[in-house]
Amino acid sequence: MSALRSFRLLAVEAVQDAVRRRVIAAIAVVSVLSLLGIDGCTTCAGGTIVVNGQAAELPQVAGATGLLTFSVLSLWCMALAGVLAAEHLTQPLDDGSAILGLARPVGRGVFVFARLAGALAIALTTGGVLLGATAALLAVRTGLPPGPAVAGFLAFAIGAVTVAALAMSLSLAIGRLANLLLVFASVGSIALANTLSLAAREPGGLLGLLDAYGPPLASAVVVAVSGWVPQLELPGDPAELVFRSVVWAGGSLVALWWLFGRVELGRQTS
């Protein structure tokens, strides 16, 4: 029995589990509402646009709108990845299916990464649809090039892996509600720290530490799609952001593997 085959079976089951629990249906409804919002945000067409008393070209305004919309959607989908991932590990541990699965010749690493893959498949698909729709509508309606959106999606995907793996690790130690709040608080705090830093307002204290050493969830996406706003000059080194994003994603996966390998499963006392 190959580990790859077990991984595939369990990852597919993780997605089917979400379908059975109507998680995907709920995400689809939220996505449709988001798409309607995106449609509204990208309908600017023709006419004279005046910004601060000066006439502005449509692509300039659309670029800033696109950057903002793309970044906010990316962060929302990263948080979604975290919430889904935590639930994807808590659920089988609670309902007993993890115990039965791990009584088969399945390694703990295979099991936990398959569950993570299932959660990420849903979150990345959602992100792909929303971010893709944003980029496509901006390209069609305002002429913005789609290239930066590809880099932006990659930055989002790496951030989603980090958030999902960390949330899954935390779910082994804290309750569902606490984990949910922590995911949104963490992503929000990092986004705030990154935004302050990108606006050249050096954040201090914890926000400063998050910006300097934390996963650059917002920075990486903003820098990736900054090509839409050519006049925008962002501080920092893009290569350093890429390096830090990858290190955080890799470190989060290793932490998840290590922690799940040591957890006591199905503790009973008979």
Partner: peptide, 25 residues
């Protein structure tokens, strides 16, 4: 393995449970 408290995802079908475990076996 048969656990003391047999518990499974409630929305899963019997055939689905067995198909998954046949694959894992």
């Amino acid at each position: 393995y048969l656990p003391e408290r047999m518990a499974l995802p409630g929305r899963m079908s019997v055939a689905g449970v067995l198909a998954l475990h046949a694959g894992l076996a």
